[in-house]
């Protein structure tokens, strides 16, 4: 299991990198979807079954599909504009990576252990996290309304 998860993390990172590096927009969206799926597998490996399923359902099923659709609508030729500041970006990000990786090497605690079953998450969402949950439902509603408002055609 451990080694499988290591492979999956590796694949997630590689495909995340490919999201950035790939010139073809559709390819990078597909890589993105793959890395979403990999993250879902990581969730499953620590016992967060509900989150794993939700991750796949929302990210690959909804977010990924929306990305693909929007790529189709907006960039027919499917090529993205070149990056800029490649090397300085690498330096900066590498610096940050070093700075946060350095202290986290010493963390040796175990992860997992709780069962992220649907029932438990549901209980949690409707008790301790009730207010954020309700707020987010409103946020989602307003996002739907906002998106339809933004995207509507003026001439209709």
């Amino acid at each position: 299991m451990q080694s499988l998860m290591l492979i999956i993390s590796f694949l997630v990172l590689i495909s995340a990198l490919m999201v950035i590096l790939s010139e073809d927009m559709v390819h990078s969206a597909l890589f993105l979807i793959f890395s979403f799926g990999g993250v879902g597998a990581l969730f499953l490996s620590v016992g967060a079954q509900f989150l794993g399923a939700i991750q796949i359902l929302i990210y690959t099923g909804a977010v990924g599909v929306m990305m693909l659709l929007m790529i189709y609508f907006t960039s027919k030729e499917g090529k993205s504009i070149k990056r800029e500041g490649k090397y300085s970006g690498i330096v900066l990000v590498g610096l940050l990576g070093f700075l946060i990786l350095y202290p986290s090497i010493s963390i040796t605690r175990e992860v997992g252990g709780t069962k992220g079953l649907t029932q438990n998450i549901g209980r949690l969402l409707f008790s301790d996290l009730l207010i954020p949950f309700e707020v987010i439902s409103i946020v989602l509603l307003s996002a739907i309304i906002g998106a339809t408002y933004i995207i509507r055609r003026e001439d209709h």
Binding site: A53, L57, T60, G61
Partner: peptide
């Protein structure tokens, strides 16, 4: 839920 999630990949 897993089943629905898997169904949702097929559009991709």
């Amino acid at each position: 839920l897993f089943l629905i999630a898997m169904f949702s990949i097929s559009p991709i």
